[in-house]
Design a protein around this nucleic acid. Structure first.
Length: 573
RNA sequence: UGGGCGAUCGUCUAAUGGUAGGACAGUGCCCUUUGGAGGCACUUGUCUAGGUUCGAAUCCUAGUCGCCCAGCCA
C-alpha cells in the first residue's frame, strides 16, 4: 500500500482470522459473481475527526482494512468532516497516527470536504430535477412537521416552491446571504414514510463556521446523510461497512445514488464493539477529558488507542482480540477479561523480564560477606531464549516485596516467614531468622541466612523450596514511580446508574494508584516508552511517555494472574 | 403503538437441512527457578409454542424478549 508518511508494521500473516463471518461471505460472493465487474474490492474507514479513536474503532479498522486486504483490495482513510463545529486538525492527526500504530496503511487519504464542490453541484441537479427544495421553516417547526414514530409527517408549506426560486435561494444560501439556521435544503421524498430518514431529510444547513480544511470557503455544509453515500460512490467503494444504526439510512443513500445516477456502493452493517467496564462513546470520552476526570485522551485508563498505547497495550494484541471477539449483527458485550487475555498472551511471549519491588521490605543476609557484590546471569525471557541474558547485581542487603513475607503465615502461604526457606529468583536459597520492628510493631526488616551452595537457585543436595520470590539489591536499586491502573469504571455497564445520575457516578475511585518509591533492578534505567517488560511475579509494565532516566515512571499495563490472591480470598486469610 | 434489525454455553462467536464446535471466564489435576506461562480434564447452550422433514440452531407460522430511528450530529 502507498501514501503513508510514517512506517506501519506489517500485519503478521500468522494472525488467526475468523473462519467465517457474514461480511466476508458477502464480499466473497460479490467477487465470485463479479457484481462490481473488474473493479477491485474497495473499502474505506470513515471517522469523523471530532475525537480520538478508541478500541471500538479498532474493530471497524480491522474489518475495513483486513477484509479488503484479504480480497486483494484497497482501503481509503476518509475523514467525514462535514461538521466544522466539532472537528479539529488535532483529531485528524491523531487518527492517522493511531491507524498506523494499529498496523494499517491506507491506499488514499480522503476527506468528505474534498467533495464539497461536487456535492454542491449534485444538490443543484436535484433542485433542477424537482427533487430538493429550500425550506424556511425553523428547526423546531421542521421537527413538528416530521410527525412521530406512529404518525406521518406533514409537508412543509415551502415544499412546492418553483425550481427557479429554490435555485436562487440555495445559491444565495451558499453566497452567505442568510444567517445560520434560517433555511435548509431538503430532499423531496415522502413525509409519510414509516422510515423517518425518508421524511424530506435535510441535505444542507447554513453554518458560518471555519472548517479545519476549507477555512471560510463555505457557509453551508452538507449533512452526513447527504455526503456519506456519495463520498463512497466517488471513491468507487464497493463494500461500505458501517455499524447497525445506519441500516435505516440505506434507503436514503440509495435514493440519492439513484437520483444522481452514480456508482452504487454496497453497504453492509455490523455490530459495534462493547466491552464490560468500558465506555466507548466519543461524546462521553470527550466529557471525561474536558472535565479533567482523566489526564487527557491518552490517559492510560482511557479505551482510546492512544491511551492503550501509553498503558502498554500492543497493536498485535488488540488485533487478535478483535478477531476473536468476532463480528455479527447482535448487540453483545464482550468481557474485558478477553481483551486482557490477548494482551497478556502477547506480552508473555515478548516482554523482557526484569525484577522490580513495588512495596519494599529490607532483607539483610547476615552470613553474606559485607561489601561483596555478585553478578547473577539471568535470562531476559524464559519464554524466548534468543532474548539473551543480563547481569543482575546481588549483595548482602536486598529488597523483597512486603507481600512476600508474613511473620505469621496463613495456610497455604509458601513465601518467606520465620524459619522457612525460599528461593531468591536466580540467586540463592534464604531462610528467615529474625525480624526488626518499628515502634508500632510493623516488620521493617527481616534478617535471613543464605545457603552459599545454592547459587543460581538450586541446592546441590536436591532440597526443594515451595516458593521463589523476586528481589533487588538495595545498593544497586533504582527508585521509580510506578502507576498502577485499575478499571476506569466500577460497574460492568458504566451507564448503569440511578435515576438522575450519570456514568460519572460509576467512575472507579481507585483506578489509579501511584507508588513513588518502587525499587528496580539497574537494567531498567534506559527503558524506552512502549517497550514492554514483565516485572517478574508482578505484572506487565512499560515506561511512560514522560519517563526519563533521571525520573523513571512506569505504567502497569496489566497485573499477572494471581492464583495466591484467589486462594487468599477463598480461605479468607 | 409505525419502521428496521436481532436472539446458540456465564460472555463473545461457529455450524449455511446431517455428530451443537472454538475462545474467554470458572473448576480440578499435572508441571514449574515467576502461586506467571504451559499441559490434561470437566461443567454449562440453540428464546417459546406449533408445523414441514427420515432428520431442524438452520425452513414455515404465531408469539416473547432486546437493540436502533422523531439532530439544521455523525
Amino acid at each position: 500500500m502507498t501514501n503513508s508518511n510514517t512506517a506501519a508494521p506489517e500485519t503478521p500473516s500468522s494472525e488467526p482470522r475468523p473462519a467465517s463471518n457474514f461480511l466476508r461471505e458477502q464480499i466473497a460472493e460479490d467477487a465470485a459473481t463479479r457484481k462490481f465487474g473488474d473493479a477491485v474490492i474497495q473499502t474505506r474507514f470513515p471517522p469523523e475527526p471530532n475525537g480520538y479513536l478508541h478500541i471500538g474503532h479498532a474493530k471497524a479498522i480491522c474489518i475495513d482494512f483486513g477484509l479488503a486486504d484479504d480480497f486483494g483490495g484497497k482501503t481509503n482513510l476518509r475523514f467525514d468532516d462535514t461538521n466544522p463545529e466539532k472537528e479539529e486538525q488535532e483529531y485528524v492527526d491523531s487518527i492517522q497516527r493511531d491507524v498506523h500504530w494499529l498496523g494499517f496503511d491506507w491506499e488514499r487519504l480522503c476527506y468528505a470536504s474534498d467533495y464539497f464542490g461536487q456535492l454542491y453541484e449534485w444538490a443543484l441537479k436535484l433542485i433542477r430535477d424537482g427533487k430538493a427544495y429550500v425550506d424556511d421553516l425553523s428547526a423546531e417547526e421542521i421537527r413538528q412537521h416530521r410527525g412521530t414514530l406512529t404518525e406521518p409527517g406533514r409537508n412543509s408549506p415551502y415544499r412546492d416552491r418553483p425550481v427557479e426560486e429554490n435555485l436562487d435561494l440555495f445559491q444565495r444560501m451558499r453566497a452567505g446571504e442568510f444567517p445560520d439556521g434560517s433555511r435548509v435544503l431538503r430532499a423531496k421524498i415522502d413525509m409519510s414514510s414509516p422510515n423517518l430518514n425518508m421524511r424530506d431529510p435535510v441535505m444542507y444547513r447554513i453554518l458560518h463556521a471555519t472548517h479545519h480544511r476549507t477555512g471560510d470557503d463555505w457557509c453551508i455544509y452538507p449533512m452526513y446523510d447527504y455526503a456519506h453515500g456519495q463520498s463512497d460512490s466517488i471513491e468507487n467503494v464497493t463494500h461500505s461497512m458501517c455499524s447497525l444504526e445506519f441500516a435505516d439510512h440505506q434507503p436514503l443513500y440509495r435514493w440519492f445514488i439513484e437520483n444522481l445516477g452514480i456508482f452504487p456502493s454496497q453497504q453492509i452493517e455490523f455490530d459495534r464493539l462493547s466491552i464490560t467496564y468500558t465506555l466507548l462513546s466519543k461524546r462521553k470520552l470527550l466529557q471525561l477529558v474536558q472535565e479533567g476526570r482523566v489526564s487527557g485522551w491518552d490517559d492510560p485508563r482511557m479505551p482510546t488507542l492512544s491511551g492503550l498505547r501509553r498503558r502498554g497495550f500492543t497493536p498485535e494484541a488488540i488485533r487478535a482480540f478483535v478477531a476473536q471477539a468476532g463480528v455479527s449483527r447482535t448487540n453483545g458485550i464482550v468481557d474485558i477479561e478477553m481483551l486482557e487475555h490477548f494482551q497478556r498472551d502477547d506480552l508473555n511471549h515478548r516482554a523482557l523480564r526484569a525484577m522490580a519491588v513495588l512495596r519494599p521490605l529490607k532483607v539483610v543476609i547476615t552470613n553474606y560477606p559485607e561489601g561483596q557484590t555478585e553478578h547473577m546471569e539471568v535470562a531476559n525471557n524464559p519464554e524466548d531464549l534468543e532474548a539473551g541474558t543480563r547481569q543482575v547485581p546481588f549483595s548482602r542487603e536486598i529488597y523483597i516485596e512486603q507481600d512476600d513475607f508474613r511473620e505469621v503465615p496463613p495456610p497455604k502461604y509458601y513465601r518467606l516467614s520465620p524459619g522457612k526457606e525460599v528461593r531468591l529468583r536466580n540467586a540463592y536459597f534464604i531462610t528467615a531468622q529474625t525480624v526488626v520492628k518499628d515502634s508500632e510493631g510493623n516488620v521493617v526488616e527481616v534478617h535471613c541466612t543464605y545457603d552459599p551452595a545454592s547459587r543460581g537457585g538450586n541446592s546441590p543436595d536436591g532440597r526443594k523450596v515451595k516458593s521463589t520470590i523476586h528481589w533487588v539489591s538495595t545498593a544497586h536499586a533504582l527508585t521509580a514511580e510506578v502507576r498502577l491502573y485499575e478499571k476506569l469504571f466500577a460497574k460492568p455497564d458504566p451507564n448503569d446508574c440511578a435515576e438522575g445520575g450519570s456514568f460519572l457516578d460509576n467512575l472507579n475511585p481507585n483506578s489509579l494508584e501511584i507508588i513513588s518509591d518502587a525499587k528496580l533492578e539497574p537494567s531498567l534505567a534506559s527503558a524506552q516508552p512502549g517497550a514492554p517488560f514483565q516485572f517478574e511475579r508482578v505484572g506487565y509494565f512499560t515506561a511512560d511517555i514522560h519517563s526519563t532516566e533521571g525520573a523513571l515512571v512506569f505504567n502497569r499495563t496489566l497485573p499477572l494472574k494471581d492464583t495466591w490472591a484467589k486462594i487468599e480470598k477463598k480461605t479468607g486469610s
